[in-house]
């Protein structure tokens, strides 16, 4: 464990806590894409298959349980909570996210490290996470006024994978093992997808104005 990975995990944890805080306290999911939340639940479900078979550390297991629990409970809140579901804007959240799942699954079937069920699922989760934010970014462009918590959620979610890239660079220079190029590429693509969001997020922060993404 290095400072970049710890910072990345804490940033990721902060993003899910900000979202849970928003949905649980103000009982609203306005501006939040259910599609992205469903994709993330699938990302964690397919990435953490080894949670019962391979024990790495208490930290690793606890964090996996937090990410699995938070992503599935957020999906449940938006779909089934009698108050929260009313604030879900399904007419705006129209990204066809299964069109993201299918290419990621096909790519994982052809481009992977080992052709085993766990490995293909793990690779699928990497590819899927890289594009999982797209429905949320599309929804933000349609939602004129982005509330602070949703903006902070997306910012933290994008920042965590950026920190992981520093973690991979650090490990590349300090450990004998190697970080597989699939992880590198998926992580870089994922972070690049946030590039324009980061730009507008910093602009709004610098000029102290409401965050608005150009349509």
């Amino acid at each position: 464990m290095n400072i970049f990975r710890l910072a990345g995990d804490m940033t990721h944890l902060a993003s899910v806590l900000v979202l849970l805080l928003k949905i649980h306290t103000i009982k609203s999911c306005a501006g939040v894409s259910l599609k992205t939340q469903e994709l993330y639940a699938l990302v964690f479900a397919t990435r953490y298959l080894d949670i019962v078979t391979d024990f790495i550390s208490v930290y690793n297991t606890v964090m996996k349980l937090i990410f699995l629990g938070s992503s599935f409970s957020i999906v449940w809140y938006i779909r089934h909570h009698r108050v929260v579901r009313r604030s879900y804007d399904k007419d705006q959240d129209t990204f066809r996210h299964y069109l993201l799942m299918i290419p990621c699954m096909l790519l994982a079937l052809f481009v992977h490290e080992k052709f085993t069920f766990k490995e293909v699922m793990w690779t699928f989760s990497l590819y899927l996470e890289a594009v999982a934010i797209l429905p949320q970014l599309v929804l933000l462009q349609r939602t004129r006024n982005i509330d602070n918590l949703t903006g902070q959620y997306v910012f933290l979610l994008g920042a965590y994978r950026g920190l992981y890239i520093f973690n991979w660079i650090y490990r590349y220079f300090t450990e004998p093992h190697f970080v597989h190029w699939i992880t590198w590429i998926a992580g870089v693509v994922q972070t690049l997808l946030y590039a324009d969001f980061f730009y507008y997020y910093f602009e709004s922060w610098k000029n102290n104005v409401r965050l608005q993404l150009p349509a």
């Binding site: 990975r5 995990d9 990721h12 080894d50 391979d54 790495i56 550390s57 690793n60 964090m63 996996k64 990410f67 490290e113 793990w122 992981y164 973690n167 991979w168 490990r171 450990e175 093992h177 190697f178 970080v179 597989h180 992880t183």
Partner: peptide, 10 residues
């Protein structure tokens, strides 16, 4: 083993 290190990551 020269297994990828990222398997111990989240």
């Amino acid at each position: 083993s020269n297994d990828t290190v990222t398997k111990d990551e989240l």
